[in-house]
Structure formats: structure tokens, C-alpha cells
């Protein structure tokens, strides 16, 4: 069970720059019900609702003068949002966009539209596909029966349309097995014609449904002020990002289910409000860097 720390004890992190703007574009609504989902998304989890195209446009306009570098779209499953293609087209007029999807809702016409939208922009449209194993048994144990085949079908259509999807998998194996698992992923993807696979392994976030699956954080697992004294805070997503939702602006996609993660009604309020590392999940980000970004947080060595 995750625990919120007393607000006065938690270290704070001011925003260095709004480099990334995230959108909880499908709220907590997903066509799958994965047993490792850190915000317990499902078809009937309506705690956060969809963003519509006008809401996203308003945030894009507000973000432009802040010099945002990248836009990310997550959920839930973004392609359950009926405005998703229009939202991506709007976004690509401002900057590069990344959509995080389970790839099970990508029929050919959607992929064709995505390819057209991507081709029409000077900026990159990245598609990040979550697949958690190299076999139906391994993947579907987490993501539900039939998810593997449907996701691989979606991925194959993306690859055929010219995309180079970033395949993400949550690590459910021991570290020493990682090279073998990466090799298996490369073989699997090569079989559908994806010979230069981009792979991203994510650490588990022991909260939401995942806490019930693998156990939550221990009482002592948290970020302290002392730990931050010897740490480059720019490695944390909260130093460089905010998340727009239908219910206000949050600090990051990980803390969506925590009221402590809500930093304001408007983007400007949330930008002006420092993040508080009051949740135990902040420790995972502290240890692993900005795991949500396409390219992990890296810093210049100022030692």
C-alpha cells in the first residue's frame, strides 16, 4: 500500500523548464484491464475522463510561449478517444508528439491516417507500444487474453506503414535475464519485418493494480531531503514536465491517482507550483530517472 508523506517532510522540486507536456487524453479508461497497471485503468474506471480536442488545443496554445519541446499522450488507451487523430494533427503543428498505446485498437484505416498525419509534419510522431512479453503466455498473463495477438497485429500495421514504434515492456524478470529478453523481443519483431526495433524496458511502479500483483513499496521507501541534496533534480520528470487532465493539471502521469499530484487548475498554476516528492512511487523515478520519457533523463556531469 503506498503512503503519502506528511506534506512538510517531502522534498520539493521546482520546474526547471516545461520541456514536456503530457496529456491524460483517455483519462483512466482503457479497453484492457492489465494486472500491472499503476493507475488501474479499465473500461469502467472513470475517475479521470477523456480530454476533448478543444481542451487539448487550449493547452497547446498556452504551452507554446513556455517553449515546450515535446508532447506526450497517454491514458488509459489514447485510441479510445474519438478525437485522437485530430488531436495528434493539431499537436504536430506545435512540436513532436508521442502516443503511448497498447496497439490493440489500430485497424488499417487508423494506421493509414496516422501515417498521413506523421508525413504531413516536420516533427516526429512517435508511437510507443506496450507489450509485456515475447509470447502470448507471458504478455497476456498481465494484459489479458488475446492482447498479444491483437497488439502484434497493430504493430505489424504500424511497421508496414513506415513507423518505427518504440516497444516498451515492464520488467518482470531478473536483471541477469535482460539480454536474453531483449534478444527474444528483437527476434519476435524481426518476424513481422521490424528489423531495427527500438526497445524500452520500464521498472515496475508498485502502486495501483501492480501493488496488488507484486506488493507495494516498503514503509521506508521514499525520497528524503537528504537524498535530494546529492542528486541532480533535472533527472526527474517533475523538474521538466506537467500533465494536463480533464480535472486540472497534475505533476506527472505516475501520480495521477494522488490528489497531492494535482498542482493547479491551469497550466500556469501548475508550472508555478513546485512538485512535492511525497509519494513512494517518486522513489522509482529517483532511482531510474525520468522513465516516462522516450529518451531517459540524462544530465551534464557537473562534478
Amino acid at each position: 500500500m503506498s503512503r503519502t508523506l506528511p506534506i512538510l517532510d517531502a522534498p520539493t522540486v521546482p520546474l526547471t523548464a516545461l520541456d514536456q507536456l503530457w496529456f491524460q487524453v483517455a483519462g483512466t479508461v482503457c479497453n484492457l484491464k492489465c494486472s500491472h497497471c499503476f493507475i488501474s485503468c479499465s473500461p469502467d474506471n472513470h475517475s479521470h475522463w477523456f480530454l476533448d480536442r478543444a481542451q487539448v488545443s487550449e493547452a497547446l496554445v498556452a504551452s507554446a510561449s513556455m517553449g515546450v519541446k515535446e508532447y506526450y499522450f497517454t491514458g488509459g488507451e489514447p485510441f479510445m478517444n474519438r478525437d485522437m487523430l485530430g488531436i495528434l494533427a493539431d499537436t504536430l503543428a506545435f512540436g513532436p508528439a508521442t502516443v503511448l498505446t497498447n496497439a490493440t485498437l489500430l485497424p488499417q484505416r487508423t494506421v493509414d491516417d496516422l501515417a498521413r498525419i506523421a508525413e504531413g509534419s516536420q516533427y516526429t510522431l512517435e508511437v510507443r507500444v506496450s507489450i509485456d512479453g515475447t509470447t502470448p503466455e507471458m504478455n497476456d498473463a498481465l494484459r489479458g487474453e488475446g492482447a498479444f495477438v491483437r497488439a502484434m497485429d497493430g504493430m505489424a500495421r504500424l511497421v508496414a506503414a513506415g513507423f518505427l514504434p518504440i516497444v516498451t515492456a515492464m520488467q518482470t524478470w531478473d536483471d541477469f535475464e535482460t539480454p536474453e529478453v531483449l534478444g527474444a523481443f528483437r527476434e519476435l519483431l524481426a518476424d513481422i519485418g521490424y528489423t531495427r526495433a527500438r526497445l524500452k524496458i520500464l521498472p515496475p511502479l508498485r502502486m495501483g493494480a501492480e501493488a496488488a500483483r507484486s506488493g507495494g513499496y516498503a514503509e521506508t521507501e521514499r525520497v528524503t531531503a537528504k537524498m535530494m541534496a546529492v542528486y541532480d533534480q533535472d533527472l526527474l520528470l517533475c523538474a521538466r514536465a506537467r500533465l494536463v487532465t480533464a480535472r486540472g493539471v497534475w505533476v506527472c502521469p505516475i501520480l495521477l491517482e494522488y490528489e497531492s499530484g494535482r498542482l493547479g487548475e491551469t497550466l500556469q498554476e501548475a508550472v508555478d507550483t513546485p512538485a512535492r516528492l511525497s509519494e513512494q512511487a517518486c522513489l522509482t523515478c529517483y532511482v531510474s530517472g525520468a522513465i516516462c520519457s522516450n529518451v531517459p533523463g540524462y544530465a551534464q556531469d557537473h562534478s
Binding site: 523548464a17 520541456d19 507554446a64 510561449s65 513556455m66 517553449g67 515546450v68 519541446k69 515535446e70 506545435f94 512540436g95 513532436p96 516536420q122 516533427y123 516526429t124 529518451v295 540524462y298 551534464q300
Partner: peptide
């Protein structure tokens, strides 16, 4: 200008970001 090892690729560097720099 803000970070010696920051990658500025054409397809991931919005004009709004360059203007800020």
C-alpha cells in the same frame, strides 16, 4: 545554450523551443 549535451534534432525541436533558447 542551456546544456552542452542536449540533442537538438530537426524533427524534435519545435520552433517555440528555439525561440525560448
Amino acid at each position: 545554450p542551456r546544456q552542452m549535451n542536449e540533442f537538438l534534432w530537426e524533427s524534435t525541436t519545435p520552433t517555440q523551443f528555439l525561440q525560448k533558447l
